[in-house]
Design a protein around this nucleic acid. Structure first.
Length: 430
RNA sequence: GCGGUCGUCGCAUAGCCUGGUAUUGCGCCGGAUUUGAAAUCCGGUGUCCCCUGGACUCGGGAGUUCGAAUCUCUCCGACCGCGCCA
């Protein structure tokens, strides 16, 4: 959410941003108008309350003076104002709610490096890493590999839950486990603190970190407690410090979180999403940073460098993409994706997303830094980046490291975590 | 799930029984004093607004009342004990 001051003092900045995104300005005008309406109502309400308070003050005095007649006459005067005020209070509260609902739909201001384009074809290549693997046999898709090796059971999962859920079995499940631990240790060695978050959040906290539309299309709601399953550990780890002032010497705060992630994936279909590429539940190791505004852009590059080094160490071929205006979404100001080479699909596909959300989440969550208790402290910046979403990393490893016999070579760095094993063997249970 | 104790400004506290607009200490900021520091003294230190002024604020919401931190209901959260449990 953008600071309301942006709409009052610098609307031209928001307008320029909307031009980049090729959006009409109606939504901005609506916020400005709603803000004016709220302020008008607030002021009118305050004036009424003032009248009432002034009158009511006389009651205490009159009673002290034992002047019951005077007290009674004031009472009648004040009673009338009471109804008027409660009516106005309701209108004012509604106006504020309306303003912020409109305001929450305004996206973050794009960084100047973001390429301008209406859709994802405008994304630009930032860098290319590793070498594209060559195969002297017909490559299999990961979907074929998991089936012939019995590594994933989608059918039985559909039976007990529904489509796009899965049992992960045998060596592929062990590899998934190894990936988690490897990524956590990798980031720990770079100064990140390991945190395991709750996988459900209440609505108030959740509204601070995500696009409002996500409540309909992304998150699972839990009844009767009104919680939401997290779509990523980014959400609880960023909201963790809501309504707090973080002592400045604690910044930048580097956290590495691991959690199951749950996504409804409403409207997502297609053959390119087959197998375990797009699923309702997966595990993700995530980097989170809370920082001073002046250091956030350097830290964004640091997060990307961590991803690049991590994925390079797995021996995989991928490229880094600078996401353009039309593909950006609501919360991020700038975003890099890592796209891994998926031979069976003959394309690069998204495996990592690395964002600087600047003060967009922190405004809503009211996370500040400085001396706790000191008024008007500055708002922090929040950043997040995938380290590995294990299901997608498994797809990249399976497809890039596949052998003619359908077995898969285990990345060197993960072998010590799998008892020195060099190849993923078929699961003995079908 | 049951029973109890509790939730007040960054932290800690008073006020609640008996309704009249939040006390004190620490911390922090500014000033005085000092070569400098400590100590001491003075002032400030929640939010919002159309800001010489005003309104709001005692976990959230509702109710009673002219008026609620205070009384009533309800929800949330914390802690302790019991029960159940990986």
């Amino acid at each position: 959410m953008l600071d309301i001051e942006m709409f009052r003092e610098f609307p031209h900045i928001i307008r320029a941003d909307f031009d980049k995104r090729n959006l009409p300005h109606d939504a901005i005008d609506a916020v400005i108008q709603a803000d004016q309406e709220w302020r008008r109502l607030l002021h009118a309400t305050d004036q009424l309350r003032r009248e009432k308070n002034e009158a009511a003050r006389g009651i205490a005095q009159a009673k002290k003076d034992r002047d019951e007649q005077k007290a009674q006459s004031i009472l009648e005067q004040v009673a009338k104002l009471g109804d008027e005020i409660s009516n106005m209070e309701q209108q004012t509260a509604e106006a504020l709610h309306n303003r912020d609902l409109l305001r929450m739909r305004i996206p973050n201001i794009l960084h100047e490096d973001v390429p301008i384009s209406d859709d994802e074809t405008g994304n630009t290549t930032h860098s290319v890493h590793g070498t594209k693997p060559e195969f002297d046999f017909d490559v299999r898709t990961h979907n074929e590999l998991i089936e012939m090796n019995h590594w994933v059971d989608l059918k039985r999962a559909a039976k007990i839950t529904g489509s796009r859920f899965y049992f992960l079995k045998g060596d592929l499940a062990r590899l998934e486990f190894a990936l988690q631990q490897y990524a956590v240790e990798f980031l720990r060695s770079r100064g990140f603190t390991f945190v395991q978050p709750p996988v459900m959040m209440n609505r108030t906290a959740y509204e601070g970190v995500t696009d409002l539309g996500d409540f309909e299309t992304v998150m699972y709601g839990i009844e009767p407690d009104k919680y939401f399953m997290i779509a990523t550990s980014e959400h609880p780890l960023t909201a963790m410090y809501m309504n707090e002032t973080i002592p400045e010497d604690m910044l930048p705060l580097r956290l590495v979180g691991v959690s199951s992630c749950f996504r409804r994936e409403v409207g997502s279909h297609g053959i390119t999403d087959a197998g375990i590429w797009r699923v309702h539940q997966f595990t993700k190791v995530e980097q989170i940073v809370i920082a001073r505004p002046e250091e956030s852009w350097n830290l964004h590059e640091e997060l990307l460098a961590n991803c690049v080094d991590l994925w390079n160490s797995l021996g995989l071929h991928f490229e880094v993409v600078n996401i353009c205006s039309g593909d950006m979404g609501t919360v991020a100001s700038k975003k890099y994706d890592l796209e891994a080479w998926i031979p069976g699909a003959d394309q690069y596909k998204e495996v990592v997303s690395c964002s600087n959300c600047t003060d967009y989440q922190a405004n809503r969550l009211d996370i500040r830094f400085g001396t706790p208790g000191h008024p008007n402290q500055p708002i922090v910046h929040t950043l997040n980046s995938t380290a590995v979403a294990t299901s997608r990393a498994l797809v990249a490893i399976m497809e890039q490291n596949q052998q003619a016999d359908g077995r898969v070579s285990i990345p060197q760095v993960l072998r010590p975590l799998m008892g020195g094993q060099e190849t993923l063997e078929p699961c003995s249970i079908e």
